[in-house]
């Protein structure tokens, strides 16, 4: 696995928020067709790193390499244009819109011809494709006609995950995608993650749940105090090793 070049890589990123140094030369790699977990204690710099890699923020120094070439994202739209999507922890959905409208939010399909040029939506087509995508990803909804706010928390989360996954063609970041989910829903999201990985997309999973990380991830990278401190193959790693790396009890010399 380490033979393939990384699809998306961060090299020695630094990022300050006022006097706080969130990233101090952090590096990170994600390869196509693998689930890589990004773990670390609170304040280790996971969010800052993901924000830099998904275009929400620009790093102060360091380099982001995508598909072998250095890139600069000035907005999330830049990153999205390259097939990089993010599932946010705080469920960025529009609760008053139905699941299909949320899936196509910002990417609405328009009718062919003159009506489309006037901005008229092709609602039937969006509903049809949304229904199919939800089925493909195993998202089960009681109805695709109700506002998302009327769905359960787990169903809402599933729609948020599905929205990013459907549009991600290269990389998808998932920030705590299973937080606040029941056992069955959690399992379903993990299945989605594996399915997306098998389609050749790089999945970056941010999670505090170590057993879950080891269950679904292929590799794990550990951040501590704004730097990468360890890298593991998930198959031969224990929760104790991860926690040791996160707390500073264990460091790998070559990881940074």
């Amino acid at each position: 696995m380490s033979g393939t070049p990384p699809l998306l890589a961060a090299r020695a990123l630094t990022k300050h928020y006022g006097t706080v140094e969130a990233l101090r030369g952090a590096s990170f790699e994600a390869r196509a067709g693998e689930v890589v977990a990004l773990v670390g204690d609170n304040g280790a710099g996971k969010s800052a790193l993901v924000k830099c890699l998904s275009g929400v923020e620009t790093p102060d120094a360091g380099e982001i390499v995508f598909d072998g070439a250095p890139v600069r994202f000035t907005s999330p739209t830049d990153a999205r244009a390259m097939g990089i999507e993010t599932v946010y922890q705080d469920l960025a959905v529009a609760p008053d819109l139905d699941p299909a409208a949320n899936l196509f939010l910002g990417r609405e399909l328009r009718k062919p011809g003159l009506l489309g040029r006037l901005g008229v939506l092709d609602k039937a087509e969006m509903r049809r494709r949304a229904t199919r995508e939800f089925a493909r990803l195993g998202v089960r909804l009681p109805s695709v006609d109700v506002p998302i706010g009327a769905l359960s928390g787990g169903q809402r989360q599933s729609v948020a995950v599905a929205r990013s996954v459907v549009w991600a063609s290269r990389v998808v970041f998932m920030d705590e995608p299973t937080a606040a989910l029941g056992v069955v829903q959690r399992q379903r999201v993990l299945d989605v993650i594996r399915r997306v990985r098998d389609e050749g997309i790089a999945v970056v999973l941010i999670s505090h749940n170590m057993p879950e990380v080891l269950a679904v991830a292929d590799r794990v990278e550990v951040l501590r105090l704004g730097q990468r401190v360890a890298r593991f193959q998930a198959a031969d790693t224990t929760v104790e090793q991860l926690v040791g790396a996160m707390t500073g009890a264990l460091t790998q010399e070559d990881a940074a």
Binding site: G83, V165, V166, S169, R170, E199, G200, I201
Partner: peptide, 8 residues
């Protein structure tokens, strides 16, 4: 591009 996008 890749499969996930195309299927939509």
């Amino acid at each position: 591009m890749t499969t996930a996008k195309q299927s939509v």
